[in-house]
């Protein structure tokens, strides 16, 4: 069952702009039903961590005539929407990240839209729509080629 608005309010009780963040999250999960909000521990680059909400799941990306469910995780900082979400692609074990100008080896997503993020002109819903367009031209993940089972893994 989908997460309700009141559950979201509870999850985001420590967010500085809670009502705004809840509202934008609700419109995203109404449109993209395969994304769901999850409360989890986010570790900052300085090693500190905080309980934050992320939107986890898949977005439909059309690439060369087929639609793929690209798995992403968008972390909403407690200063959202004044700071952009921290976004990652989530490859499964059968996928590899295609690093490039939009994705690094950790799966972190870099987009001009995130770089130039400014409230109120920037919004979660529009960000996802832009991701779908950009990933449709340049997918951030690919399936690994099937490797023969007789080929042992190599360890250095």
């Amino acid at each position: 069952m989908a997460v309700s608005k009141s559950q979201l309010k509870k999850m985001m009780s420590k967010y500085k702009y809670r009502d705004l963040t809840v509202r934008q999250t609700v419109s995203v999960i109404a449109m993209y039903k395969d994304l769901k909000p999850v409360l989890d521990s986010y570790v900052f680059s300085d090693g500190s961590s905080r309980e934050l909400v992320n939107l986890t799941g898949t977005i439909p990306v059309r690439y060369r005539g087929n639609t793929y469910n690209i798995a992403i995780c968008l972390w909403l900082l407690d200063t959202y929407p004044y700071n952009p979400p921290v976004c990652f692609v989530k490859p499964t074990s059968s996928m590899t990240i295609k690093t490039g100008k939009h994705v690094d080896a950790n799966g972190k997503i870099y987009l001009p839209y995130l770089h130039d993020w400014k409230h109120p002109r920037s919004e979660l819903l529009e960000l996802i729509q832009i991701m779908i367009v950009i990933f449709g031209g340049e997918p951030p993940v690919f399936s690994r080629p099937t490797v023969s089972a007789s080929y042992p893994p190599y360890t250095a």
Partner: peptide
């Protein structure tokens, strides 16, 4: 029941 959609990705031979 609803476990969400299974992630997929394009084949890498392209």
């Amino acid at each position: 029941l609803n476990g969400g959609t299974i992630p997929t990705a394009p084949p890498s031979h392209t």
